[in-house]
């Protein structure tokens, strides 16, 4: 760290580099996807059939797969995360808050691939034995993904709760609130921003994860009709198809998937920004 003053122009430069990297990524994706988005291949791209050998490169099943999987993981993880945070800030015993937060913090250090490995050899056989099918399914990936995104949600909520809690401490005491009342009636309603940030980032993490669906979801390119069906996400599609010949439509479809994923995160961020400003 430099002694004395920090040069604002140097800081600005660093910020510009960081901010421009996102443009660079988008530019590259768009550049490589451009041949697919123009011309007749677009209609082949926006179909439900992925059969490269027959010249059909539909990526809609993967888009649907990504949304299904991320949505279901959020449905599981968000209430769980919210419950954990409320527990740590008033609904549970005070002594339990610190160790619990420690555990959740510790979860951030669990590698995705470890979740994938354990699920592949613990959860998959259980699902195979308990239900029908091969076990590689939406259900397996959804459950595992929920665990993966849980700490993201909890840690954001916790820091928000902490700030609000400190600000409302006196008010709550003056009103004679119990800790439970304080978290439910004051902290929670005042934490809208944190709630939304947690939701958006959790969803972003869920839809962007590659390894969990790649290892657990079975990767069949079709729309799942039940939680026991396999699915393929945009991310695992990219990982699977990056192999193909660099000029064919299959290759172009990779970058199209990339552009779609990018657009999804753009939309999430735009929505978030709007909500924040209201």
């Amino acid at each position: 760290m430099p002694r004395g003053n920090i040069t604002p122009s140097l800081l600005l430069f660093a910020t510009l580099v960081s901010a421009l990297s996102v443009l660079a990524i988008f530019g590259f994706l768009l550049w490589f996807a451009a041949p697919v988005f123009t011309g007749e291949t677009l209609s082949s791209l926006l179909s439900w059939q992925w059969r490269p050998q027959q010249g059909e490169f539909g990526i809609l099943p993967m888009l649907a797969g990504s949304l299904c999987l991320a949505g279901s993981a959020m449905l599981l993880a968000y209430p769980l995360g919210l419950g954990l945070c409320c527990f740590m800030h008033g609904l549970g015993p005070t002594w339990a808050a610190r160790p619990l937060l420690g555990i959740v913090r510790g979860m951030t250090s669990v590698p995705t691939v470890v979740y994938g490995l354990v699920s592949a050899f613990l959860l998959i056989p259980l699902i195979r034995a308990g239900f029908s099918g091969s076990g590689f399914s939406w259900l397996a990936a959804g459950l595992t993904l929920a665990m993966l995104i849980l700490p993201t949600i909890v840690l954001i909520l916790d820091s928000q709760f902490r700030t609000i809690h400190a600000q409302t401490q006196l008010t709550a005491a003056a009103l004679g609130f119990t800790p439970a009342q304080q978290v439910l009636r004051l902290t929670l309603p005042l934490s809208t921003r944190g709630l939304l940030v947690a939701a958006a980032l959790g969803f972003g993490r869920a839809i962007g994860d590659t390894l969990i669906p790649l290892m657990l979801a079975g990767n069949a390119p079709l729309l799942p009709h039940s939680p026991l069906d396999p699915l393929r996400t945009l991310t695992s599609h990219i990982a699977l198809v990056v192999a193909t010949d660099s000029q064919s439509a299959a290759y172009g479809s990779l970058f199209a998937c990339g552009v779609i994923l990018f657009m999804v995160s753009l939309l999430v961020n735009l929505a978030l920004r709007r909500l924040r400003h209201e």
């Binding site: 901010a19 996102v22 994706l29 980032l201 994860d209 590659t210 990982a239 978030l272 920004r273």
Partner: peptide, 27 residues
């Protein structure tokens, strides 16, 4: 604007960073 770009960067799936890197090399 800058903050938005950073937020956006945070939301980009890691596989896209990989795809970007791969495309960068081809380029």
């Amino acid at each position: 604007l800058l903050a938005f770009a950073i937020d956006l960067l945070a939301g980009i799936p890691s596989i896209l960073m990989g795809l970007f890197g791969f495309a960068l090399i081809l380029f």
